[in-house]
Each structure stands twice: as C-alpha cells, then as structure tokens.
Design a protein around this nucleic acid. Structure first.
Length: 416
RNA sequence: CGGGGCGUAGUAUAGUGGUAGUAUACAUGCUUUGGGAGCAUGAGGUUCGAGUUCGAUUCUCGGCGCCCCGACCA
C-alpha cells in the first residue's frame, strides 16, 4: 500500500488524555482512535496488527484441535440466571439492555454459560467428546474505571476457548497441551522470552489456575519468577501451599511486575451440571462433563507488545505481527529514485510481500521519523545511495542495524 | 464506588469580565530534499445549560465528558 493512500497520519504530540505508553504510541502512529474512555477504534494500521495476532492465535488453536465459532454478544437473561451470574451483586461488569418489549438482555462479558447452553442441543454421547471450541470476539465489560490504554477497556477483543472432556486425564492432557500452545502464541508475538506460565488462584471454579504473565513495569500484577524453570507464581497464591503445589522454591524466585495476557483454568462441572449437559458413556450411563476455559486478551496482547517493545522514537513490531513486512521509503524527488522505488514496490506486490511504500514528497527526516514511529520491522531505503551502489539499504527496526543486500535475496527472504 | 484534577482550533498549549494568541497539522505558491526544513498568504476555536453582569471563554451552580490515585478486575 502506498503511504499517500494511507487513511491515517502520524502525530508529533501525545494526546493529552493518555498516559499509558501503548495508547500514546498507537494513537500517535495512527493505529487506534479513542472514542470514549476505554473504547478504541482500530484504524487500518491497527487492524492489520490485530488481524495478524488473531491469525497466530487461530493457527495455534486449530493445531490444538479447536473448532472456531462465533457466539452472540447479545445474551439472554435466563441463561445467565442458571448459575446466578445475572445478578449485579454477583457480577458487576454487566452492560444490560432491553428489547422494545422490555425483555432484558446482556452484552456478553464472557460466554461460559452461553456455550454450555448451546451444547445441550448438540452433545449427548461419548462420541461427541472431547470437544474444543473457541471464538475470537468482542467482549463488553462495564469497568468502574478503565486505564492503561487498550490493556483494560470496556470493549475489547478476546479469544476464549472452552474444552469439554470426559475424564480428568483427558482434561489434564489438553490443559498441558494448551499451556504449550499459549507459550507458542506469545513467542510468535515477540514476547515469549518475558512471558511466564504463572501459577495462580483458581477463583470460584477450582483452587488453582495458570496465568500467562508478561514482565512489564506497566503491569498491575506481582509475580515471583523462577528464571531457570521458566515458571512463575502469582502473589495471590504465594504461600507455602501454593509453592509446594506449583513445585517452586522461595529462594529461586524474584519479584516482578507483569501484565496478564492469558489465563487458563479448569471449571469442573460448575456450568455443565446446572445446564444438564451430560453424555452417555459406552454403557449408556449418564456422565458429567468437565469444562475448561482458556482466554487470551487479544487487544490487551497488542497493547502489551507495544508496552514492552518500543523505544523513544516509536513502536518496534516483531516480524510476525508487524502491520507490513517491509516499509519501503523513497528519498527525495529525483526521477530515477522514484522510478526505482516504484519498480521495487510493484515487484513486492507481485511477489506477495506486504509493503507500505512511503511515496510521499516530504523530506527524509519526516519519513524516517514516521517510519520509526509506525515501527514496521524492516525498512528499505531508496535514495541516491541505492541508485549509485545498486544495493538495497535495509534497516532493522529492532536492532537499528543497516545492511546492504540485492533485490533478489531480499525477495527470497521475505516471500511467504 | 470513595478522593483529587481538567475541559480554549484537527492536535498540543497561552491568555483575558469588553474584537482570543502561539506551535503544529491543513490549503495555495516559491524555495528546499539522507533524520520531523524556510518564507509568504489563507481557512479554522472557547463542552452544554442556568445564574450574576450593560457585557461571561473568564465568576457561581448544575449537567456532560476526560484524566489521575484508591477500591475492583474469570
């Protein structure tokens, strides 16, 4: 895409109503736009990144055996009343609304009840299980106070997978596989080395769960990290019992601040039993179904990447989720330079390399500043130098290193 | 939900009880072109309502909105 056609523009000034690094940088670079407190639109650049993250998650969830679906945001009151979560006393993040005839509805903040309710129509035999269903969808939570840009809003994108299994062994096996998938997702998003599978409290469903915590001073969680084992334990369960269960030793741990980017937990029959979701085994005997929930805050993950990967000039996208693979930047308005850049642009399009082509007639300084801010992982500069040397000047956004190469090997490296 | 703060142009900011200023962004022209260039010209603004006043962007009250701290956060 030509940058002259890009819908958004960069800004020099930080918006006055943002404090968090992710919101400031994403807004300045034209990825998002705040509509109201805790509610952000995703502009073309932001959407590109969001979709890339979603696709990584989709690939990993599919590899786990997950089947994708999309449940509704509008949800029935009676479904939520089954386990008492409609009442504002029990759940205080509801957005509730009404139909014209005064029938009450809620905007989904999660979909546990709804998916179980759905499955009562489809699951009845041991042959139907195990079953792993997931969706990537917008959730609504009426937070009392929003903060941290896109990391804690009232409307956000979440991936939620639900597992339905017959036995504890089946459940545990999947749970362990899911842990690995999750780490893969975070690695592919460029934050694998600072994200830890973290032993955490289980809340109302089971005693313990696992969170995926990314080290960052912008985080709100405190965890204790065992860097050798690559594991951590949340402060909430940082006691003797927790340590023993997690298999961690107090002396091996260091305290860190972190952002929760994912959470997996076993839910037992908390939802399946009340909804009468059972299956019949080989002997025709009625059996309970074990459920598990596996969440990733997709937009929060995007915000986390920005928090963690940036410098004073802008964002530093990891290759896999960079809005474009290459930022092609032409310098000056020398005819031959423009001709060369145009040719390279066309070649990339033909070869299927995703490219943002800064074809604007503005000075080099402005182009470089914008390029740094937007943060595309690889920059290709075409100016007089390239014309003379017949070499391509490639700058890596992350390391800042510039290398020379020729078009052929560049294409070979980036062609998908 | 408790406490505190703030609403002036697209953005960021001055200032004032009596015609609202700067930067940036935008438009036009000329110059310039490897790290946010220069000159000229132009267009663009006081969150809403009520009150006080001859007169309110400014003072008072209320609404709405936004931000921060805390609480909360399957």
């Amino acid at each position: 895409m030509r940058q002259s056609d890009l819908f958004t523009k960069t800004r020099k000034e930080a918006p006055k109503d943002e404090v968090s690094k992710n919101a400031i940088l994403l807004t300045r670079a034209g990825f998002i736009n705040k509509e109201m407190a805790g509610v952000y639109s995703y502009l073309p650049l932001g959407l590109k990144v969001l979709k890339k993250i979603e696709n990584i998650i989709r690939e990993e969830m599919n590899a786990l055996g997950g089947k994708e679906l999309v449940l509704t945001s509008l949800q029935r009151k009676d479904v939520w009343e089954k386990v008492g979560r409609w009442d504002d006393k029990n759940v205080d993040v509801w957005f509730k609304t009404k139909l014209k005839d005064n029938v009450e509805l809620g905007l989904g903040f999660t979909h546990d009840e709804q998916i179980v309710n759905l499955l009562t129509e489809y699951v009845s035999s041991y042959k139907d299980l195990p079953l792993y269903l997931y969706q990537i969808q917008t959730k609504f939570r009426n937070e009392l106070r929003v903060k941290s840009g896109i990391m804690r809003g009232r409307e956000f994108v979440m991936k939620d997978l639900y597992s339905f299994t017959r036995t504890e062994e089946e459940q545990d096996e999947f749970y362990e596989k899911a842990k690995k998938s999750y780490m893969k997702v975070f690695s592919r998003c460029g934050i694998g080395d600072i994200t830890f599978c973290t032993f955490a409290s289980g809340g109302t469903f089971s005693k313990y769960s696992h969170e995926f915590q990314t080290l960052s001073l912008a985080g709100e969680d405190i965890i204790y990290v065992d860097e050798k084992k690559n594991l951590a334990i949340n402060k909430d369960v940082f006691d003797e019992e927790g340590l023993v269960t997690a298999g961690l030793k107090r002396d091996d741990l260091v305290e860190r601040k972190s952002i929760e980017v994912g959470n997996i937990f076993k839910q037992g029959t908390k939802y399946t039993d009340p909804f009468n979701l059972y299956y019949q085994d080989e002997n025709g005997k009625k059996q309970s179904i074990l459920m598990g929930g596996y969440g990733i805050g997709v937009t929060r993950l995007m915000g986390t990447v920005v928090e963690v990967l940036s410098d004073d000039k802008g964002i530093i996208w990891p290759e896999e989720i960079s809005p474009f693979q290459v930022h092609l930047v032409s310098l000056g308005n020398d005819e031959n330079v423009i001709k060369l850049a145009d040719e390279i642009y066309k070649t990339f399009q033909k070869e299927g390399i995703e490219v943002l082509y800064d074809d604007r007639n503005v000075r080099a300084g402005e182009k470089f500043a914008d390029s740094d801010l937007i943060g595309i992982s690889t920059r290709l500069v075409i100016g007089d130098k390239a014309l003379e040397s017949k070499k391509l000047e490639v700058k890596d956004r992350s390391s800042g290193q510039t290398t020379e190469t020729d078009l052929k090997s560049f294409i070979k490296k980036f062609k998908k």
